[in-house]
Design a protein around this nucleic acid. Sequence first.
DNA 1: CTTGATTCCGTACCATAGTACGGACCCTAT
DNA 2: ATAGGGTCCGTACTATGGTACGGAATCAAG
Lengths: 178, 178
Amino acid sequence: MRELTIGEAARQAGVGVETIRFYERRGLIDRPLKPHGSGFRIYPAEQIKRIKFIRQAQQIGFSLKEIHELLALRADPKADCSMVREQAVAKLEEVRRKIEQLRQIDSALEALIAVCPGCGALQACSILDTLVEPSRGPVPRIEAEGPLPTASPQRTRQRNGRFGGNNRGTINKRSGPP
Amino acid sequence: MRELTIGEAARQAGVGVETIRFYERRGLIDRPLKPHGSGFRIYPAEQIKRIKFIRQAQQIGFSLKEIHELLALRADPKADCSMVREQAVAKLEEVRRKIEQLRQIDSALEALIAVCPGCGALQACSILDTLVEPSRGPVPRIEAEGPLPTASPQRTRQRNGRFGGNNRGTINKRSGPP
DNA sequence: CTTGATTCCGTACCATAGTACGGACCCTAT
DNA sequence: ATAGGGTCCGTACTATGGTACGGAATCAAG
């Protein structure tokens, strides 16, 4: 089975038909218009892995735009090779940052699991504490350190009086582009 | 400096003021309503790390809903500890899947970079090939294997005749929940 | 006390990533 | 030939994660 209809391709890649058409519109995959007769898209089986790659890349935090860039990266002598290389290096750094962050969460979860099972008299310990406090030693011992930043559904407030006041001139800049 | 206004907190966390209010509405952070006088939110400095954590977790592919779950995970004797543990283990598995996927992309990028610099007469080689082909050996040697699935902006098509036909009954199920 | 900067809240708006729909078209089997 | 299923395309709608705005209130300085 070398060629697939859109429906089969979707099933094999684990996505919806519409999703494939959507990716096509975004230029993430292309479509070999009716190579013999007419009418329907048919995909070579290897497109499936492209689609699967897109999904996986999304799950680890890449946007479709970034995935497009990733897929466009290719050692092609006809292109400006140094630019490709630069982009690849930049992406690699990004990937490593992500891995590092995931590793931190990984150990935080491990620590949490290590502390939890006995279900003894432990203080509340969120992933944040494990993450942010440097924690010397293999498994961080958590002792009471006062109340942690907990998100509880508390809310009590009201307004009453009112009179003039105004502020125009959006001040909302933060690090990084919009 | 133990307490911050929303503006300072936003600046320190590298987000917009509105973002903090947004997270608050989503229950990701809480707000210690005017502890002394009245009116404005003030945050303990440690909330900053909570906000930073949220951002980082987003960058590695967690949704706000998932981040909420992550932050809610805590070794708390008052809660059902076994459930917490289960969730933590599930999250840990998820994190490790992500790490694995990132590592694959990592080596694909490395291979791409290793092959690129000379800018010699190489065949086009996208990240996909490096990723999907098992590639025995440290740096996969890429030899021409025929045209790869490339996304090019080609598009030529038209319609003309028309007559009856209909299809009701959405068939679009795929693996996994919606 | 006035001024200007911040903050408050609610609502509206935006981009991204799909999903669903409608109505037509094409293909295969009967 | 015709019935039914899969496809086609364009457009509309949804969900998520913010951003922007308007007008009022509040704080800190002068």
